[in-house]
Design a protein around this nucleic acid. Sequence first.
DNA 1: ATTGAGACCTGTCGGC
DNA 2: TGCCGACAGGTCTCAA
Length: 252
Amino acid sequence: MVGRRILQVELRRPDLRTPFPRRFAQRLAGATTVALTRRAKYLLAALSSGESLLMHLGMSGSFRVTATDATATHDHVVFHLSSGSAVVFNDPRRFGFMDLARTDRLDRHPALKGLGPEPLSEAFDAGALARACAGKRTPLKSALLDQQVVAGLGNIYAVEALHIAGLSPQRQASTIATAGGEPRDSARALASAIKQVLAEAIDRQTSARYRAGRFRVYDREREPCRRPRCRGVIRRRTQAGRSTFYCPVCQR
DNA sequence: ATTGAGACCTGTCGGC
DNA sequence: TGCCGACAGGTCTCAA
């Protein structure tokens, strides 16, 4: 999309999770994509019009680039580009999201304004994690899914990071908080586990389509723990409505 | 103010 | 084969 002009936008329905903004297709038509970036799980396309397109895949959304006009079920938005190809947004569950906002005010957009630090940035470290968890009575796993604590971490990698760090998902979040100025070892372990698991995932592009059994704990209920010499068996439980997987032996 | 439950929507899978 | 419930990678709103 970068450097291409959006000739025309086809909207196949009035909404995804929320209605498309007013005059959505018209505001995009004629604009050139200047840059594609990301914040948390939001994709951001800065346009020559001075507006930015915010996009979120939700649970089941995907984009494909195509040269043909063939359309599939759940194709909701088609961007026709000056290159001759089209970018198609497909989303069966329609938990996806799109909106337009002025680029110079993007950080004030409701979807972006409360977000915590990017996990792979220098701003996110043991100290930042410890401070964000201070006073939180919620379980540590729930705290990791709180986008104000760390931006863009989802259910799979929250659970994976806790296993790497050897921390129980049920532990109260405040127990990893700062102890007299210095972050605890647990906060150091967890912050670096988050960075590690995300860096690995990006490296292998595993998130693009997850395959069962490739994770340390996620989706491995009743299977053996993969930590060397640990004899534990992975358990599953529900926390705040989401599935948590963990090893009761090596995660404390 | 935090926190958890429920809602949003469709598809898939396992059990009967 | 078919029906039914459980569950799915996210986020928002609402009521304790």
